[in-house]
């Protein structure tokens, strides 16, 4: 067991966990943040994607591949942290409006990937959108409504 300190969605936590525990399980089991999903457990699908900042700015990572130890002293954002006061974040709003969420299981990861994409490219081209989401699988939408959601979110945030 090892003790780690981390900040999740602006809340500081100190946890004693097995050092190799997956960050995904730490979030879901120790912090009851079940918005982060597991669909493959091997870094292929992005259902478990979160934003992890270990000092050099937030990165989009697959939490199923990250040992808890690696999150020591890090700052994390999960889907629950995007709209802390129950008002939807503009990205969430656009996914809701444009049909970017169908079954919803990929949606938390997709929304965080979009957040990361729009931070890097506030006005993304189609190629940048496709590239930015290529680590997140969605079986329901065929991605077209998700692209539309991102375009709407970009316009909204640009205002």
């Amino acid at each position: 067991m090892t003790t780690i300190h981390l900040t999740v969605n602006n809340q500081p936590h100190t946890l004693t966990v097995p050092p190799m525990k997956r960050l995904l399980d730490l979030l879901r089991e120790d912090l009851s943040l079940t918005g982060t999903k597991e669909a493959c457990g091997e870094g292929e699908c992005g259902a478990c994607a979160i934003l992890l900042d270990t000092g050099s700015g937030p990165e989009l990572v697959n939490s199923c591949l990250i040992p808890a130890l690696q999150a020591d002293n890090a700052t994390l954002t999960t889907i629950e942290g995007l709209a802390p006061d129950a008002a939807l974040h503009p990205i969430q709003q656009s996914f809701l409006q444009a049909g970017g969420a169908q079954c919803g299981i990929c949606t938390p990861g997709m929304i965080l990937a979009t957040h990361h994409l729009l931070t890097q490219h506030p006005n993304p081209t189609e190629a940048q959108i496709r590239e930015g989401l290529s680590g997140n699988l969605c079986r329901c939408t065929g991605y077209m409504r998700i692209f539309e959601s991102i375009r709407q979110a970009a316009t909204e945030t640009a205002r």
């Binding site: 918005g35 629950e80 939807l88 949606t107």
Partner: peptide, 16 residues
């Protein structure tokens, strides 16, 4: 979508 708000918030509870 009726259940859409919970889905985009990540608040929807699936079986796991």
């Amino acid at each position: 979508r009726k259940e859409g708000r919970a889905k985009v918030l990540g608040a929807t509870q699936y079986i796991d």
